[in-house]
């Protein structure tokens, strides 16, 4: 039940209504314009030549649309010392994000299952300890993590980054799945036990098939979080394994002489594209799941 229906009833009837309605829409449209302007400017700028950028302003639409800046950003922009564009780093990010998401979501699902359906003494304390892991400032683990990765031979590798993202991602996925499974009736598990299903069968046959809403939420959360990460990438990745966010930052800061804003913007668009697309297609589910999980209290 939404509060919206009720607020309509709450509103005064009569001449005040139209004015109030008008004000609501006016405010929303202004706000939407302000929120959209940076994106619009980014797209426009990425499609312009530098000459046109100097001639126009932030929001002037491109006169002669050119994809040159995109091509440069992808293929030949200089990042640190090499001038091969973002494409290699884009692949690095994919190689990092796919296993990290799968592992952290899989572990989170199992943890949520155990913490809700196989309760044991101290499980709540354990969960609290894990939740705290979601919130620590990562600066506190940077130094020891750098040494540990070096010790186990994963320094500067994609595998090392995957490990780091799984360690700190599993706290969030556990939180998501635990809050989801808490709402699944225990009777379902009891019924499956009576039917002779064991620990794994209950999980794979009874719980997993109904978990897709929270799987979607966890995958989106982890994907955006890991794709967008900069701190771990900058701290632990070597030149060969750097993710795209680190490369973007280097690209923007490497440009010697004249700043090529069109290339910067195209590079930013390329970096943002996967998460924006995911958000556009799956955002609805994400919001729904997040609302159910985050604002319980």
């Amino acid at each position: 039940m939404s509060v919206a229906a009720e607020t309509v009833i709450l509103r005064r009837s009569g001449s005040g209504v139209n004015l109030a309605r008008f004000a609501v829409y006016a405010l929303l449209i202004v706000a939407a314009a302000v929120f959209l302007a940076p994106l619009v400017s980014m797209v426009f700028t990425s499609l312009k030549s530098m000459d046109e950028i100097r001639a126009g302003n932030l929001l002037s639409p491109p006169g002669a649309v050119t994809l040159e800046a995109w091509a440069t950003a992808w293929n030949s922009a200089c990042i640190s010392v090499s001038c091969a564009g973002l494409k290699g780093y884009f692949l690095n990010s994919i190689r990092m994000v796919v296993p990290a998401v799968l592992l952290s979501v899989g572990l989170g699902a199992l943890n949520g299952y155990v913490l809700t359906k196989w309760r044991f003494r101290g499980d709540n304390l354990l969960f609290g300890a894990m939740m705290f892991g979601c919130f620590i400032p990562f600066q506190i683990v940077l130094i020891p993590m750098a040494f540990t990765l070096g010790k186990i031979g994963l320094a500067g590798t994609t595998a090392g980054l995957v490990l780091v993202h799984v360690v700190y991602g599993v706290c969030f996925t556990t939180l998501f799945f635990r809050n989801f499974y808490v709402a699944v009736p225990d009777e379902l598990v009891k019924a499956a036990r009576m039917d002779g299903a064991g620990f794994w069968q209950i999980f794979t046959r009874v719980l997993l098939p109904i978990s897709w809403p929270i799987i979607v939420v966890s995958v989106i959360w982890q994907f955006t979080g890991i794709w967008n990460d900069f701190l771990f990438g900058a701290s632990f990745a070597g030149g060969e394994s750097q993710p795209i966010t680190v490369a973007l930052n280097n690209l923007v800061n490497t440009s010697t002489g004249v700043k090529l804003y069109n290339v910067d913007m195209a590079a930013a668009m390329i970096t943002a594209a996967p998460t924006i697309l995911i958000y556009l297609f799956l955002g609805r589910f994400f919001l729904r799941g997040l609302m159910a999980g985050a604002v319980k209290g």
Binding site: P185, E187, L188, K190, A191, A192, R193, M194, G196, R205
Partner: peptide, 16 residues
């Protein structure tokens, strides 16, 4: 439970 040869019907039915 499965070794006791017992079946149970639950209040919420607990259908999968």
């Amino acid at each position: 439970p499965k070794e006791r040869d017992i079946a149970m019907v639950f209040q919420s039915y607990a259908l999968y």
